[in-house]
Structure formats: structure tokens, C-alpha cells
Amino acid sequence: MAVTGLLMLLFLIVHMLGNLKIFFGRTDFDHYAHWLRTIGNPVLHESWYLWIQRFVLVVAVVLHAVSAYQLSRRDLKARPTKYSHHQRAKAGYATHIMRYGGITLALFIVYHILDFTTLTLNRHGVDGAAYDNIVSSFSVWWVTAIYIAAMICLGLHIQHGFWSAAQTLGYNRPSRDRAFKGAATGLAVLLTVGFLIVPVSVLAGLVD
């Protein structure tokens, strides 16, 4: 879970930074969206790099989900009788919500792909017109609301997940604990805010 999680996290950072290009205007952003399809040219054919990346990400998502399922099954089996007096948790909300947050994110990814990759649910839905497709979706308040909810889930998931990965891979030590916890919170805030700037700006009329 740690390795696949970190792989997805790396992708998300690049994805978030790429999204911010929308503030340079339609021409710049659509050109960036087109360039993504030409990465690796001329060694790779048109869009090949993109498909390789998609394949790697799908494998990462599937392995992450399968591990989560196996771990959850094992964990639920290990505590068949619950305490009648509910345990007061020391762990924070981010830790508590990992499973449901993860399921929410999986559903969101499906919605997100139908919205902006296949353009099935997109109101504008013109292939290659990335800028206008984005504006058309985020102009609708409830679409932006879905994205806000999903990105808060993402932030919480990363806040526990990043530090947990440092534990799982054995990188954490007493001297590094605060740094890892700080980095986890920093990454969570950075990605949540970074991703949400775009839909909120569209809804606020700053990007149109």
C-alpha cells in the first residue's frame, strides 16, 4: 500500500501543478493538454506515453485497493466481538476515515475520468478543448461541490497515508517523526488547495 500510494502521490503532485497552467489562459492550457499526448515523441508514438502512464496508474490503484481489501478483511476478522463500551480513539479523524475515504476517492476517480477523460458526463465535451471542458463542468455549483468534498477526502487520506507509508517502509525514526508528520500535513494541504483553486476560481468567475 505504501509503494503504490507513493506512486499515486507523485502523479497527483504533477497533475496538480499541470492544472495550474489554466491560469495562463486558454491557448497555453490547451497547448499543455496537447503536449501531454506528445511526451516521448518521436521515440514513442502519439499518446503512447500517456497510455503507459495510465496503465501504471491503474495497476497502482488496483494493487492499492486489493491490499486495502485484504488488510481490512484480516483486521475485521481479528476483532469479531466489539467492545460494548465504545473505545475512545486517540487516532485523529484522518486515520479514522481511511477506509471510507479511500472508497469515496475510488468512486470519485471513476466520475472524474467520465467527466474529463472520456468526456461522457462533460457538458461541453469537445476533444482537445480542455480549457472549455473544465470551465463548463466547474461552472455548475454541484460539480464543484463534489470536487471540494473529494479533495478534502484526498487531503485526509494523504495526511495519514504519507506518514503511514514512512512507517511501513521503515523510514520513520524518532528523529524524523515530526518531519514526516509535518510533510504529510503539508502535502495534504498543498494538494487539496492546489487542486481546489481551479474549480473554485471557475465558479467564482475568475476563469471563464
Binding site: L71, K77, A78, R79, Q87, A89, K90, A91, S164
Partner: peptide, 9 residues
């Protein structure tokens, strides 16, 4: 025993 999810409990 169950698996560790680093809850810290």
C-alpha cells in the same frame, strides 16, 4: 492477529 494500519491506539 490483525494487520497494522498505524492508528497509534
Amino acid at each position: 492477529f490483525g494487520g497494522c494500519t498505524n492508528t497509534g491506539e
